[in-house]
């Protein structure tokens, strides 16, 4: 599929050329993890976190951030801008349907989120000896379902937002919620229990990531919710996506 390959290549270059998407999308989550880890107290085991170190406890939240920054801010913003500026419309004048451009954008952004997540895991391991995910398969399932649900929501915003301003307004609210429930702003042990439990079901499902990372099998219900969210939001986005 030469057209799709070419689209992925160009969209990847545009992603890397944009200093905002490059630094915030790719590097920020690792930088924050490393910054927090530089504080000695956060590298000590603490009874608040069941004897874990804060840095181990926070690592999955850095993953939430990696996924959310790319899937909820970059992806919808780029697509809404493409619609607003007539990039999608111009593609409609060619034999290649603009859905291929959407697909290319998803591939590039998924790769970016994945790269950002790998950076978090590897830098945590190398610098602070944060253990690698203990249940690799459970972790992979939780991560794939989590990233799918967040990206599907991002696509839904891109599908309906009439302008890039509207898209950024909507995504800011969603992004802040995901970050809050994902324990990025406040560590989750400081949240009321009810809110922390709600957070288990908010994409991308930080508790599932934490469980699988630290060696517990992730619970089925939150994973099912992530899968359902991904399918529902993704289907709806595909149905109502406006090309112009």
């Amino acid at each position: 599929m030469p057209a799709l390959g070419k689209l992925v290549q160009i969209e990847a270059r545009l992603f890397l050329r944009d200093p905002m998407s490059f630094t915030i999308g790719l590097l920020l989550p690792s930088v924050i993890l490393l910054g927090l880890g530089a504080i000695p107290a956060l590298r000590e085991p603490s009874p608040d976190m069941g004897g874990q170190r804060f840095i181990d406890y926070f690592a999955p939240s850095a993953l939430v951030m990696a996924v959310a920054v790319v899937g909820l801010t970059n992806l919808p913003a780029v697509l809404a801008t493409y619609r607003e500026r007539g990039v999608l419309r111009r593609m409609r004048t060619t034999p290649v349907h603009p859905a291929k451009l959407l697909l290319a954008q998803m591939i590039v952004n998924l790769a970016a989120a994945l790269a950002s997540a790998v950076l978090v895991v590897v830098s945590g391991k190398l610098v602070f000896d944060v253990p690698m995910p203990q249940r690799p398969i459970g972790f992979a399932i939780a991560f794939v379902l989590g990233i799918s649900s967040v990206f599907a929501i991002g696509m839904l915003v891109a599908a309906v937002a009439p302008t890039s301003r509207a898209a950024s307004g909507l995504t800011t609210v969603l992004f802040m919620s995901v970050m809050f429930f994902g324990g990025v702003y406040l560590p989750r042990f400081m949240l009321p229990d009810a809110i922390a439990r709600v957070g288990d079901y908010v994409p991308p499902g930080v508790q599932s990531l934490l469980d699988a990372w630290t060696g517990t099998a992730p619970a089925a219900a939150p994973l099912a919710v992530m899968a359902a969210t991904a399918i529902a939001a993704g289907t709806l986005a595909a149905r109502i996506f406006k090309w112009e």
Binding site: I10, L14, D18, T81, R85, G86, V87, R89, R90
Partner: peptide, 11 residues
């Protein structure tokens, strides 16, 4: 050739 159709700024 459409009226009012742009490209990404960085392409």
């Amino acid at each position: 050739q459409l009226q009012e159709s742009r490209l990404p700024d960085r392409i």
